[in-house]
Amino acid sequence: MSDSIKNVEEISGVVVITTSGYFNNIAGDAVLEVFNQKMEEGKINFLIDMEDSKVVNSIGVSILIEVIEKLQTVDGKLAFTNLAGIVEKTFNIMGLTKYCEVYDSVDSGVDNLS
């Protein structure tokens, strides 16, 4: 597993991806790789836990737009949890939060996605 991915697990049918460190292009690509693999397995609901990623850049976040795009083709959902304030603000400016819910906790995210 990439250093940018701390953990991947499935809870009640939701794939929970926990990232680690600076969410740059490397981290974005790592999430995309996990996402592609799980989507091939038929998973369509994803929750990204960014508690350990307090700093992002727009290149990494742009890769998440690819994820949203792919999920739209299968009526899937992407959501986020444990976002730092500036990360949520960045997602708002870039428009991700028009397409993805943000939850306060993993449990809350899983409850709403499953």
Binding site: S58, S62, I68, Y99
Partner: peptide, 11 residues
């Protein structure tokens, strides 16, 4: 940027 060939970057 969604559902187009437009590059996702440039923010």
């Amino acid at each position: 940027k969604l559902n187009s060939d437009e590059r996702k970057r440039g923010w």
